[in-house]
Design a protein around this nucleic acid. Structure first.
Length: 604
RNA sequence: GGGGCUGUAGCUCAGCUGGAUAGAGCGACGGUUUCCUAAACCGUAGGUCGUGGGUUCGAGUCCCGCCAGCCCCGCCA
């Protein structure tokens, strides 16, 4: 209903302007805000929209808000276009103008949806170079080489993927970047240690499992902290690596390759596509970054380190913020330098960089001040083109049901593969129990397929359905619950629709002569028509939970309809119309869940 | 000391540009199945929106103070 909303807003604004012109006292007119303040009705009883402008105009007009509302409505009712769209406007309460769409108008919108594979969601109109859609970069997931993916990577991976899907659906070219931790002193440590204890592993592909690497990493870290000689050797190893010396470089390549294979298993299970471009990619740009900043006079040498000092602001007062260090006392670079090089590269025009217009970082909220500093420096260094956006998309911690950081029973970090295994196992045992209770007989393939789909969907949906800013309390029981705002609930709604088509709905595909009589039908129609607005909202706010909320509400409204209104046994005219509604509901749920990265089922 | 996030029903959370009597789900209690998958639907109970001020015709939402929890703050990422 995006375009319809805009049209009604325009009509209201015209009416409002006429009312303003008709005022005897024009002295205040320039100060008046002619925004009609149109919003969706806060309750179904109030219709489809409400306009709140009359209330705020009472004071400048020196009239009662109700009188102003009457004047606006009088103007509206002279407008034929408006009258074709809406029933006569109602004035309610202190001066709200309530608008209800005509059924003919809803039906027309609905018909447009039936023939639109995009369900009314427009392709973005924003264009950049050569009138093509603007390039978006999303930086998400980003595990560390030589370590296993753990629960700490869950949210970034799931949220980042969903945002990428939404932006892609809106027609943006999206570069999904996996900014893996593939550089730094830890590799010096690890390679030095492996040379001692498992030299073969550095020459031969597949000699080590990632699990072994993690153990070796721990040992290496221990030695590094206690053994001076080892520390020295590790530092030298880093230097060799940075120079690209052959045995070291080859060992590093191997470690990366090994990790990559493990990561890919997780990404395959989660159905996530990523392009790996790790920190090491930016090595050759680090020096240029420092040079650039220096040429803008931004660098200050403080205690031997090259820093950029930024000013913080609060209530107009300045205070000193900690500096962004771009080159350490020993000449080495750190993560700020890498992130600056990445920003610079991503924003630079195409042969030199990615030519991005919007760069989105999906990382935990702990890095908020880090990114604020990096973005600020990028602006000062003139790397950010006019209109380009740099956005940090922060998210809270994953907590256990005790409210503390999620750990295993023995107190260790939860591995992502274990977490997914458990979700699928629980889904499987739930399913088996239900099959017995209901006396159903299904083959192994079906059970495995349903359990996998439900388990993965539950993990993803539980994460996405929560406002990402808050910490997230992880609970298998809640996410796999068969009722409430969960993936199984949504999947079930779709399964019910599929059931209708299995039992003889296939032949009624015509959407001509739509005919609706029941309030449950109209409620479902109104909800279906909101889909486009929700998608555009998510694109702007980068909050997938808004989409989840919508899909949950849609499922609830559908389930009510399903429960209270017969479809297959309805008279012919209603039957056709209801089947059409079912079909659109199914499409909306499928596409909506698809944008969350969740695949759906016909039966479960 | 500086900064960020959070605080809404017993529990887990929604609440978009400030708008009408603050909403879901779970849990509790009660009801519904000769009918498209009851993994559903209907109903009841449950609130000083952390707290004190301010702005406004109107504040869960905006501004200021305070309290509580979590997190970040120069050479780790």
């Amino acid at each position: 209903m995006l375009s319809l909303t805009r049209l009604i807003e325009k009509k209201l604004q015209e009416a409002l302007e006429k009312v303003v012109k008709g005022q005897s006292d024009q002295s205040f007119v320039s100060e008046i805000n002619c925004n009609p303040q149109l919003s969706p009705a806060s309750k179904p009883e109030y219709g489809d929209f409400q306009a709140n402008c009359a209330l705020s105009l009472a004071k400048p007009f020196k009239q009662s808000p109700r009188q102003i509302a009457i004047n606006i409505v009088d103007q509206l009712h002279k407008d034929d276009t408006f009258l074709k769209l809406c029933k006569p406007a109602q004035i309610a309460g202190p001066g709200f103008i309530n608008l209800t769409l005509r059924e003919s108008c809803l039906i027309k919108e609905l018909n447009d949806r039936f023939i639109d594979a995009r369900l009314g969601v427009p392709v973005t109109e924003k264009t950049c170079l050569a009138d093509s859609p603007c390039q978006v970069v999303i930086d998400f997931s980003s595990p560390n080489i030589a370590k296993e993916m753990h629960v700490g990577h869950l949210r970034s991976t799931i949220i980042g993927d969903s945002l990428a899907r939404v932006l892609e659906f809106r027609g943006y070219p999206v570069l999904r970047l996996n900014h893996v931790g593939d550089w730094g002193t830890q590799f010096g440590m690890l390679i030095t240690h492996l040379k001692d204890v498992a030299p073969l592993a550095l020459q031969q592909q597949d000699a080590l499992e990632l699990g072994d690497l993690v153990a070796f990493y721990r040992e290496a870290k221990k030695r590094f902290d206690t053994d001076q000689l080892f520390q020295q050797a590790s530092r030298e190893e880093v230097v060799k690596l940075q120079r690209g010396e052959e045995p070291s470089k080859r060992a590093w390549t191997m470690l990366c390759e090994q990790s990559r294979k493990e990561f890919q298993k997780i990404y395959d299970r989660l159905d996530i596509r990523l392009i790996e471009r790790g920190e090491s990619f930016y090595n050759s740009y680090l020096q240029e970054v420092v040079h650039d900043l220096d040429s803008y006079g931004l660098l200050v040498i403080d205690d031997g380190a090259r820093c950029v000092f930024l000013k913080g602001h609060k209530n107009g007062e300045e205070h000193t913020a900690p500096p962004v260090i771009v080159q350490k006392r020993d000449g080495g670079f750190n993560y700020s330098t890498t992130d600056l090089a990445a920003v610079r590269y991503r924003l630079a025009p195409i042969p030199q960089g990615d030519g991005a217009h919007r760069v989105i970082y999906v990382t935990d909220a702990g890095q908020t001040s880090h990114f604020a500093g990096v973005f600020e420096v990028a602006k000062l260094a003139n790397w950010v083109p006019e209109g380009a956006r740099l956005e940090h998309v922060p998210f809270g911690l994953v907590q256990g049901e005790d409210g503390k950081k999620l750990k295993t029973r023995s107190g260790e970090t939860v591995r992502l593969c274990d977490l997914l295994d458990e979700a699928v196992e629980r889904a499987e045992s739930d399913l088996r129990k239900r099959l017995i209770d209901e006396g159903r007989n299904e083959d192994e393939n079906f059970i495995q397929h349903v359990a996998t789909t439900v388990g993965i969907a539950a993990v993803k949906y539980a994460d996405l359905s929560q406002n990402r800013n808050t910490n997230y309390q992880f609970s298998f029981d809640r996410m796999l619950a068969l009722q409430g705002n969960t993936a199984p609930y949504l999947l079930y709604a779709l399964v019910r629709i599929s059931g209708i088509y299995r039992k003889g709905g296939e032949h009624d595909l015509s959407s001509e002569g739509l005919h609706f009589t029941e309030p449950q039908e109209w409620a479902l129609i109104r909800e279906l028509l909101k889909f486009d607005e929700v998608i555009v909202l998510v694109e702007e706010e980068l909050l997938p939970n808004r989409l989840c909320n919508y899909l949950f509400e849609l499922s609830q409204i559908f389930n009510r309809f399903y429960d209270q209104v017969p479809v297959l046994k309805a008279p012919k005219k209603s039957r056709m119309s209801r089947l059409a509604l079912c079909r659109l509901t199914a499409e909306t749920l499928r596409i909506g869940m698809g944008l969350l990265g969740i695949s759906t089922l016909e039966r479960m």
